[in-house]
Design a protein around this nucleic acid. Structure first.
Lengths: 188, 188
DNA sequence: GACAGAAACTTGTCAATGCCTAGATTTGGC
DNA sequence: GCCAAATCTAGGCATTGACAAGTTTCTGTC
């Protein structure tokens, strides 16, 4: 999108993003070093700043990309329960994105691209809840929406922080999560 | 406060911990600066290192304290649903602890105090699930345990990251959470 | 096809930070 | 009263993020 053809490097913006995602996956966002990313990409230490302005700018770009990926993943799933599974799958396939997306103090909250992408993702989350609105009362539907998001988000978060390694006993996380949704919506 | 009399400062360990919790609450763990904490406490820049060895050591001490506080809070609650409410209350009263506790890449995983405190908290989480084991089948009880933790943890996490500000419409979070548990355990 | 301007990148610099080492001061046990 | 340990200070080093200024490469236009 941004730069198809590139000047000295090729596509430094993408290279830095990818290297950042690797680093975050391994050591978290706190350990991220712009200068180290520059070294990995083979450019000078100030080159990344031209694409992202800032450390915060880089993380904001990652979060925006993450919300876009999440919105796309959710849009593929037809109904609410399957969207929860996609949410969990997303956090496993894109752990670095996921972690940055939900750490607001690392982000520039007023960034237009971030706001747009986050709104797209929220829209997908909300439209999934619409499935319930017909079968349940309005208030229950709202609660069910919060419950569904909390369940998926909590499961995803605990999973990434290795807090479910023991309880899961090596079982497939997505499969277990399907079981959880069965508990939550057993009355449906 | 904690230790009776102290040497040069009074109780530097507690002072640094408290200042760190304030800083994390405001700006997250990434923005934490040991030198800034030392300045706030009115000591030299290397003084905190003597109590915590390290930046990681300070965060590990915070996490251990957090798990102890959480274990205490959960122990006060009689049954499972109320423990979930305590979990949510804990994250609001101790947001800095909560955030650090579940960010493993910031911590020294093999620290004995951390392991002990985390085990205490896990024991409290697990014993709450025991309430279910009598009324439900074994496999369902295990799933229900994961579900309950995921629900509470997801709600807490989304709450702290200000992702529920809009859906909650200004309602009391604990009250809403009680509603969520009603959905999860409606069959009980 | 040259040229002007913009985009991409480099080099140099500065303040701040984490961590290490060595030394000074205070405390508590004997 | 004295010694050892605990507590804290002072100085230094490598690394980092951010900024400023200059250089190279591309792009659109006449």
């Amino acid at each position: 999108m941004t730069s198809q053809r590139a000047y000295h490097h090729g596509d430094l913006r993408r290279a830095v993003l990818t290297a950042a995602l690797d680093a975050i996956r391994d050591s978290g966002p706190a350990a991220l070093s712009l200068r180290d990313l520059a070294r990995r990409a083979g450019v000078s230490h100030a080159a990344p700043a031209h694409h992202f302005k800032d450390r915060t700018g880089l993380l904001t770009a990652i979060a925006a990309e993450g919300f876009d990926l999440l919105a796309g993943a959710l849009a593929e799933a037809p109904e609410l329960r399957e969207r929860g599974v996609r949410y969990v799958r997303f956090c496993r396939e894109h752990p670095a994105h996921f972690q940055v997306m939900f750490t607001p103090e690392l982000l520039r909250a007023d960034d237009p691209a971030l706001r747009a992408a986050r709104d797209r993702a929220r829209e997908q989350l909300r439209s999934g809840i619409g499935d319930l609105e017909t079968s349940e009362r309005g208030e229950d539907a709202r609660l069910a929406g919060i419950a569904a998001w909390s369940l998926a988000h909590g499961f995803a978060t605990l999973l990434l922080a290795h807090n479910l390694d023991e309880p899961l006993e090596g079982q497939d996380p997505e499969g277990v999560f399907r079981g959880l949704t069965g508990l939550l919506f057993q009355g449906r």
